[in-house]
Each structure stands twice: as C-alpha cells, then as structure tokens.
Amino acid sequence: MNEIICLKDVTKTFKDKKAVDGVSFSIRQGEVAAILGPNGAGKTTTLSMMLGLLQPSSGTVKVLGENPNSRKVREKIGAMLQEVSVIDALTVKEVIQLFRSYYPEPLSFEELVNLSGLKEYELKKRAEKLSGGQKRRLSFALAMAGDPEVLFFDEPTVGMDIHSRKIFWQTVHLLKNRGKTIIFTTHYLQEADDTAERIILFHNGRLIEDGSPAEIKAKLTRKSVSFRKTEAINIKGLENLPHIQKVSVKGGRVHLETDDTDAVLSSLYKLNGFWKDIQVDSGRLEDAFEQLTEEKEAV
C-alpha cells in the first residue's frame, strides 16, 4: 500500500464560508510535503480533516486507507497542531510518559528526549510553565510518542529561535530518512524549499499548484538578468536576442526576463560593453508564491 493519504473532492464549509473548496490530492509513503498558502487559505482546515478533528462537508478523506477517526489510524499518526496546548499540573516527564502509554509501540523515553531536544531541567518543569518554544518541543515529543508512520506539523517552527528551528529541521530530515511520511505547513518558504520534496499550494480554499519546489519555481520563474547601461542604447532592440521574453527598466536597471540566463549572458558578452554591474536573478520560491497568489486574485 503506497498511498498514505487520499483526499477526494473535499469541501469544508463553515456557516456559508467555504474554507476548503473541492480539493483532491494524495500523498505517498515516505513523501515529505509542504502545504503552503497565505493566511486563511485553508491549510489548517485541511490538516484538521486529515486528523479527523473536522468532518468534511463533502468528499472523502482517507488516511492509511481508513477513516481518520479509526483507532488504527490514531495509533500510527502524530501531530503538532497550530495552537499548542499543554495539560496543566503535570511535569514534562509525566506528560511524555503518559502519552507513551497510549500507544502499542512507543518510542523510548530517552529517544523522545533526544529527538525533541528537551533539557534535563525542562523535564522536571510543569508543562504549563514552559516558554512558547519549549512547549513546541514538548508537543514535538508528544507527536513522536507512538513512533508514528505519518506526521502532521502545522506551522511547527513558529516561536522557535533560530537554533531550535535548525535542530527541528535536522530532526525532520532524520525522520524522512527513516521513511516517515511528513506533511507540514509553514510561512517560511525557505523551510519548504529546503525540506519538502513536494509543495502543495493553497489559495482561497483551493489547491492551485502541486509539484516539487523546482517545478513550481520553474513554472513561474522570473529568472532575469539585469544590468546598468553605460551608454544610451535602444533597449528595445534587446528583445530580438534569443531567449529574451521581456525587457523592462526598473530603478535605473535594465531587466531582461528569460528562461535561460546562461544564453542571455553569453549574448550580452558578445555585444560590446554597454553594460556594467550584471546580476543574475534565478527565481526564488517567494517570487513564485507571490506570483501565483497574485494571479489568482486577479482572476
């Protein structure tokens, strides 16, 4: 069985607001997928349906081939929700041990502590007294308690400092190498670019793009070569060079939009030097992201 998660034509309506609108996709075993999209795009709502916390208004959601509410599924998934909540009046160690007892084959306590990076003194603290970032680490440990096959992280690194963030993604890579299927959301696009092998882009409740980071970038590259003019030339003429799609002037620089920056560079070198300070800008995920969501708004 290769398909771990399968959504078919899923819609979720709150009152008369469509939070998720006709979304279908599936996730294969061992995939690491990022769900991206602006605030209110429907990411958390979609994750909540995969976790069985919300029922879709129409369509079907299957996890490990079953209803997400089934016990078999719950034993094999782990999650960090967008809003971390902690149980009060128990120490970190007690909460972790409690969670281990819920699962048939839990990870060992030591391993959970190692994975989450919780410190010795933090283990003795009452869970409700942890700082925001420490709570995230605890909730990561709880997500891992049952040694799950599928992991859901909803904006896991919010509130983490740079160091914790780095450690967190290292751990995710480790889990990926162990063959876990991982689905996460984030607003830090770099995190998605670095970690996910697949990006699912949401906007206004719809799935608008689905592919590898490279594909998504390639599809919407605004790769360009830019330079400053040293003499008055007719830049319109540059449009006739091969591979150039658009010529524009922004902030005193001439921008040549292209799908092949190498070809443009070699053309420029062949022409005599009316240029200086050449820069190559190969599309960033941020740009692709902005462009996609802007385009959709215009429609």
């Binding site: 976790l51 069985g52 916390l53 016990r71 719950r74 034993e75 998934i77 782990g78 999650a79 929700l81 809003e83 909540s85 902690v86 149980i87 009060d88 969670f99 819920y102 699962y103 049952g146």
Partner: peptide, 18 residues
C-alpha cells in the same frame, strides 16, 4: 472547560485514547 478552552481536549482526539 479549561481543557477544552486550551485545546487540550482537541489534541487528545488524535491519540488512540478514546
């Protein structure tokens, strides 16, 4: 009430504990 307000009850729903 506290457990629900803080989202703990929701979190418990994704564990195998019924």
């Amino acid at each position: 009430v506290e457990e629900r307000a803080q989202g703990w009850s929701k979190f418990m729903k994704i564990t195998p504990l019924t």
